[in-house]
Design a binder for these strands. Structure first.
Length: 198
DNA sequence: CCCTGATTCGC
DNA sequence: GCGAATCAGG
């Protein structure tokens, strides 16, 4: 893959929105996060500070005081970040890019991708599996929607309409959207579902 | 371990 | 210009 105008544009857009290099890489496809980062630097649109807030979980600015790298020795590192001139008082803290509106006004839509959340309905599920879940939920990482990744259990817990709502977040089972315990209640073998009829 | 961005340097 | 390898850190 090469950096066509379209791809560069998407890169700029996503980077501007605070997306991580790896997320951008996945979106673009055919490139690694390294490639994305490299491109970002070459484009000179490194520091994401345009008066906008982090927008995402992690979006800090790293500072390199002087870490002695084994290979290169002399590294001219003058001004890390100028940003002096510009008398612009501009008190407005939130510029509003006018395009990023991930979450509309909606009430509380649950999350996710596609097959997700069947809350355990207390019945129809093997007692063992239920016990397991209840046990695991205590150890859950209680992630917010934004914190979910491909490797975190996406099992929702609690009432979305309440503050007491979170996602399990434990390590998922290979290829599944949930952790082991939740996979247990999410994927019922047809056989065991039968005769459990109340 | 998972992840983040930053930098270097051979291609 | 590109990006893997590496570094530094959360």
């Amino acid at each position: 893959m090469s950096w066509t105008d379209e791809r560069v544009e998407l890169l700029k857009k996503m980077w501007g929105e605070g997306q991580s290099a790896s997320q951008i890489a996945k979106e673009l496809g055919g490139v690694t996060r390294n490639a994305v980062i490299g491109k970002v630097h070459r484009l000179g649109l490194s520091n994401r500070s345009s008066g906008a807030a982090p927008a995402s979980t992690k979006a800090e600015t790293k500072e390199k005081p002087a870490a002695a790298t084994p290979r290169a020795e002399a590294k001219p590192k003058p001004a890390p970040r100028p940003e002096p001139l510009r008398a612009a008082p501009d008190p407005a803290p939130a510029p509003q890019p006018a395009e990023i509106k991930p979450i509309p006004a909606r009430k509380q839509i649950i999350p996710a991708g596609q097959p997700l959340p069947p809350q355990p309905s207390a019945n129809e599920i093997s007692p063992e599996a239920l016990a397991k879940v209840n046990e695991v939920e205590k150890k859950a990482k209680k992630l917010s929607l934004m914190e979910l990744t491909e490797r975190t259990c996406k099992w929702p817990v609690g009432d979305p309409a309440t503050e007491d709502f979170w996602f399990c977040g434990l390590p998922v089972q290979q290829g599944k959207p949930y952790c082991e315990a939740h996979v247990g209640v999410a994927f019922q073998p047809m056989s065991s579902r039968r005769d459990r009829r109340r």
